[in-house]
């Protein structure tokens, strides 16, 4: 315990002795981890959004003009009995027109040009399943092929596109973070190397007076760990501040994202990941450096 305390004190003293280089490296590590944190946040947020989005998988089927109401009722009944379906809502031509007028009042004048409603009757199908599956897809396909159905619109396509985007962001994040993490490892590796050379005389004296290898090595390991830990703390603070500031100063960005990025959703797991990653990077980079440069 005493040994660990001494090692921690020595590590802090050593960091303070090389302030400029250590602060610089801390900044680079914080930046690297911030990039990792941002991608992690985007990925988690979009994943969260798609999960919420898929609760409401909705398919709308538009019918051909003049289709008998009985055929539509038969289809509605059949669908209501389907285990996949949560609810079926019928919209007549007039209901669709009213809905359009309500949503786009400024375009109401266009409808005045038509003698009868230009909208086809339709049914809106809500599914119970939270995620897309082959059963839902084949049911949608099956209904879409019916002769009474003119066209279909499925919000599942949206979910798929967002999932693809999420995957892309995750891959891009892993790639970019991978490069930056490698750079961080390289930086800490070299900082520890510089510190070893800077304290070469002290290390040689310690060896000659009977210090064990671990007594000499542990402060360097702790040094790497401290750099990584505080780098990740800074990255977490910056990330948290950014996420809190964006809703205040960049409202238009949030509106543009149409709810895909919810800045209210700040999972703590991101910060835990950042701190574990940062400390591990520091510790292991230091270990590699010690193994290479601190030989007997």
């Amino acid at each position: 315990m005493n040994l660990l305390k001494t090692a921690i004190i020595n590590s802090i003293i050593n960091i303070m002795r090389n302030k400029v280089i250590n602060i610089l490296s801390l900044g680079i590590i914080a930046f690297t981890l911030l990039i990792f944190g941002i991608f992690n946040y985007l990925s988690l947020n979009i994943e969260n959004f798609t999960q919420n989005f898929s609760k409401n998988i909705v398919a709308i089927f538009y019918f051909n003009e003049g289709v008998e109401k009985k055929l539509i009722d038969d289809l509605t009944k059949r669908l209501e009995n389907n285990v996949l379906v949560d609810s079926v809502t019928y919209f007549s031509e007039n209901q669709s027109e009213i809905q359009f007028t309500r949503e786009f009042p400024e375009l109401k004048y266009i409808l005045n040009e038509f003698k009868s409603s230009p909208f086809p009757s339709s049914i809106e199908l809500k599914f119970k399943e939270k995620k897309k599956n082959t059963k839902i897809t084949s049911l949608i396909e099956e209904i879409g092929k019916l002769s009474i159905v003119e066209s279909k619109q499925v919000n599942l396509d949206w979910a798929e596109k967002i999932t693809t985007l999420s995957r892309f962001i995750t891959i891009a994040g892993i790639f970019l973070s991978g490069i930056l993490i490698f750079i961080s490892i390289f930086i800490i590796f070299n900082i520890i190397k510089i510190n070893i050379y800077y304290r070469k005389e002290e290390i040689s004296i310690l060896r000659l007076v009977g210090a064990t290898d671990w007594y000499i090595r542990i402060p360097f390991l702790i040094e790497g760990g401290i750099l990584g830990f505080f780098g990740s703390i800074f990255a977490s603070i910056i990330l948290f501040t950014l996420l809190k500031l964006i809703p205040i100063y960049a409202r238009s960005v949030i509106e543009l994202s149409k709810g895909v990025l919810s800045f209210d959703f700040i999972p703590t797991s991101i910060f835990i990941r950042l701190i574990i990653l940062g400390t591990s990077i520091g510790f292991f980079s230091s270990l590699f450096s010690i193994r290479k440069f601190l030989k007997n």
Binding site: R17, E201, E202, S204, I205, R207, L208, V209, G210, A211, T212, D213, N296
Partner: peptide, 24 residues
């Protein structure tokens, strides 16, 4: 072995011509 060298060195006190003192 090298990892037991400290046991030997704890039994020996060494004085150098150039002192080898840490200036800080």
């Amino acid at each position: 072995p090298d990892n037991k060298l400290y046991k030997l060195r704890r039994d020996i006190g060494i004085v150098f011509q150039d002192f080898k003192l840490l200036e800080n």
